[in-house]
């Protein structure tokens, strides 16, 4: 149970640990998603995607 003091919510150690775990999982999922989209783009469009005129 979180503790409220001076209108602020002070998280317990369990809540902090859980939040940290969730944040790490979201970060890993986001990085994985970016990598997937990057690789799929290269695969689908081929190396020519890097040779387009500016």
């Amino acid at each position: 149970m979180n503790v409220m003091e001076d209108d602020k919510v002070n998280l317990t150690d369990t809540q902090k640990k859980a939040r940290r775990g969730r944040s790490v999982a979201i970060a890993v999922a986001l990085v994985a998603f970016v990598v997937i989209i990057y690789v799929v783009t290269i695969v689908k469009m081929g190396p020519s995607i890097l040779e387009r005129p500016m």
């Binding site: 149970m1 979180n2 919510v9 998280l11 369990t14 809540q15 859980a18 939040r19 775990g21 969730r22 790490v24 999982a25």
Partner: peptide, 16 residues
């Protein structure tokens, strides 16, 4: 929990 809607989540990544 007195009111589950107002508590801070303790869910682990494994729960998701």
């Amino acid at each position: 929990y007195e009111d589950a809607a107002f508590r801070v989540s303790e869910a682990q990544a494994g729960d998701y």
